[in-house]
Design a protein around this nucleic acid. Structure first.
Lengths: 354, 354
DNA sequence: CTGTTAGCGCATTCAA
DNA sequence: TTGAATGCGCTAACAG
């Protein structure tokens, strides 16, 4: 177990150490090493340990290229994205990159401007021999894209999708449950007059979040004042204006739950104008935990989606589909739901005493 | 040039079409096809065209695995990042992923919490056989990380780095020139009393931007009122407070140039409280064009760095270094400067008439 | 300018 | 439970 002086330089590229070196090192055939590496069961435990020791001693790591070449399993998946500044794209990329690295498949990215272009891009991807695509929201919600995918017979997994196009697999957070939990938290803090800003009406997530809010209020035996539920559009400006409505009322709410962070940030900005102190006089909470949440001040209490994790799971789900397709098997479309997390930062506090 | 009915299914994985198929299709040897594919010059133009035609007809694309295996050039680079919510990380990932896809090298990612961990991670990466690393700011500015990189003899390229650790290659935007240009633009709009919010003092970029501001004012023959230059810390809150100082003055500025978008957003929020209208009464401009710039309302006029492009160039620079290192050649560290772009959105307007 | 031979590092298929 | 042969798709090195 001594550190050999010469071992460090032996890596990929030139004189990398191969499966043969390992085999020689522990006196077995390369085939046996291969079996151990790939976790096959038909190897004597004793042999396995010997091989493992050599692998560690030589700091061996198998060549991905040789592996995919020999196993004839060269799968390549793509992330289809629209706007590079979408705040969760980096998390998706991180999750996907991590998992593809582990699974030994290659990851490409493809950009498209709108839904029209997305349809085209899907066709290009298929023509280029891509085996499957990862679809971040909002593309994952599009039925047109789903249809294009069907047409070229390409597996996909939608990430953070609010809806699930027929026949397509998606992974997301339970918006209803999350909104329920956040509202309940506000109620626990003593708030009873809670304002709610709905999301964009063309997005199903908006409905689920709104319903979660109502459900939590009902569950707590609280009436919801319909004047305190106002329409928003998921952008800062609409949050700003909604706040004007809500805070302009004689009996203003002691808490405002905005359906996303951008709107919550808008509320925050307007609260300043109204001279109401957050969180002492008003709690403000958002949804999504985007960069906005920690950019503004005070930092937002919000709901976090496990985006990185969902993305890596999405890769696995995609691989499952691809293999099923290759094997001629059928893969039942799934809708996977993952747990959210409530991140309490500086904009939520107990309701002010009246 | 007819579309053969059977050609579509022939892709990677199982029955992919190979260089042999192409060779057969146009009656040459596989080697000649290889030469054409790799753009070698010693092929007769006539032959090249024939091959190209077959490639197109068969929709052939070479197998990356086979290529890297045969050429014995398996290089693998990593992006070392700290905070997944850093707004430009996705752009870096996009640029890097695009370029590594083109160059046929693999991309990994590695996360680290702080600088201490970064040093460790660098060592792990080296031990894992990574050939080089991409360093987004702010890690790219760290001398400690640079030292660790030296220790394990690992090439690197810093992206959007304000400073260049000795011996390290970086690619960035000319902060001075950009701040100069933005200030000049404000002056063109008729502003003469311009407030400036400096960035965090521990970041060299702050100095360059500040100097660019001064230089532009001087160049225009304008005096800068030192009371109008206030210290900020690159966060929303410091921008908010700086705005309070600036807007609380009897002779407040008609424009405020914040050294980054987050601070500009803070200024915007406080302008509301002061009841000053943006951009009619006050122009506010930022720097970086992060997601914040388009989240707030009105949307920010700002300076955009070509991050995606810089990232793909960074990959090339890294590859150059890696090859130089393998060849035993020396690679002179470089500092590449790229052009910025001024994005005029809704927060800048001609100076109000007095 | 073009073709032939050899082998990259590994996994599959068979045999022992 | 293990090993020997064979070839994945491509390119380097040499021949012609």
């Amino acid at each position: 177990m001594d550190i050999e002086p010469g071992q460090k330089a032996a890596r990929r590229g030139r004189n990398a150490i191969t499966i043969h070196d390992v085999a020689k090192h522990c006196g077995v055939s390369p085939m046996t090493v291969s079996r151990v590496i790939n976790g096959e069961t038909n190897v004597r435990e004793e042999t396995r340990q010997k091989v493992l020791a050599s692998v560690a001693a030589l700091n061996y790591s198998p060549s991905t290229s040789a592996r995919t070449l020999a196993s004839r399993d060269d799968t390549q998946i793509a992330v289809l994205y629209t706007n590079p500044s979408t705040s969760y794209l980096n998390e998706i990329l991180i999750g996907a990159l991590t998992q593809t690295g582990l699974s030994g498949c290659r990851l490409t990215i493809a950009k498209c401007e709108g839904l029209d272009e997305a349809v085209e891009t899907v066709e290009d991807l298929a023509a280029a021999g891509i085996d499957g695509v990862l679809l971040p929201a909002p593309i994952s919600n599009s039925n047109r894209v789903a249809l294009a995918l069907d047409r070229v017979n390409l597996p996909s997994v939608g990430i953070a999708a609010a809806q699930q196009p027929p026949g397509r697999t998606t992974i997301a957070v339970d918006d209803h449950a999350a909104a329920f939990a956040m509202t309940t938290r506000l109620i626990e803090l003593g708030h009873t007059r809670i304002g709610f800003i709905k999301g964009h009406p063309n997005n199903r997530a908006s409905d689920f979040r709104t319903e979660g809010f109502y459900a939590a209020m009902n569950a707590a035996g609280l009436d919801v004042d319909v004047d305190l539920v106002v329409q928003g559009y998921f952008d800062y400006h609409s949050g700003f204006e909604a706040a004007a409505v809500l805070l302009g009322r004689p009996d203003r709410p002691t808490a405002i739950f905005a359906s996303n962070d951008d709107m919550a940030a808008g509320v925050l900005a307007n609260a300043h104008s109204f001279g109401v102190h957050v969180p002492a006089e008003l709690s403000v909470v958002g949804f999504d935990d985007t960069t906005t949440a920690t950019t503004v001040w005070p930092e937002l209490t919000t709901v976090r989606q496990p985006t990185v994790h969902m993305a890596s799971e999405a890769v696995d789900l995609l691989l499952l589909q691809i293999r099923a397709k290759r094997a001629g098997a059928i893969f039942e479309p799934r809708r996977e739901l993952r747990d959210f997390e409530i991140i309490e930062r500086q904009t939520s506090a107990p309701a002010p005493k009246t």
